[in-house]
């Protein structure tokens, strides 16, 4: 994967504030705008999240749980990961936390 050509976006869904999220566009992080250290860090997190085993099926009894969609675009390839609060993998959570705390998110 070419780090410079990578764009990672994330969107939040559901929860008590679902009305806010439903009309918000995804937050996009363009690796080309990051310094090399941060770009490399992002790539490692993305690779780990994609390689992590699929999470357990979500319970149909949860209510107001939030879910998140992370989309990775790289050289014409698109990978879409969608996981929720109660079922997300540790790798997905680490990537999500990185994206959330990225300046401008």
């Amino acid at each position: 994967m070419n780090v410079d050509g990578m764009k990672v976006s994330y969107a939040s869904h559901g929860g008590q504030a679902a009305g806010l999220f439903v009309q918000r566009p995804p937050v996009v992080v363009d690796a080309a705008t990051l310094d090399p250290t941060r770009a490399s860090e992002l790539k490692s997190l993305v690779d780990a999240a994609i390689a992590a085993p699929s999470p357990a099926a979500r319970s149909d009894k949860t209510r107001d749980e939030m879910s998140y969609t992370i989309t990775v675009q790289d050289d014409g390839h698109e990978t879409r990961l969608s996981q929720s609060d109660t079922t997300m993998s540790a790798e997905f959570r680490r990537l999500l936390d990185w994206l959330r705390h990225h300046p401008g998110s």
Partner: peptide, 16 residues
């Protein structure tokens, strides 16, 4: 629950 988590939810048996 979590870090800077903007929500409260019901997980089917408990509150978070």
């Amino acid at each position: 629950y979590g870090s800077a988590y903007n929500n409260a939810f019901w997980n089917g048996s408990e509150m978070i």
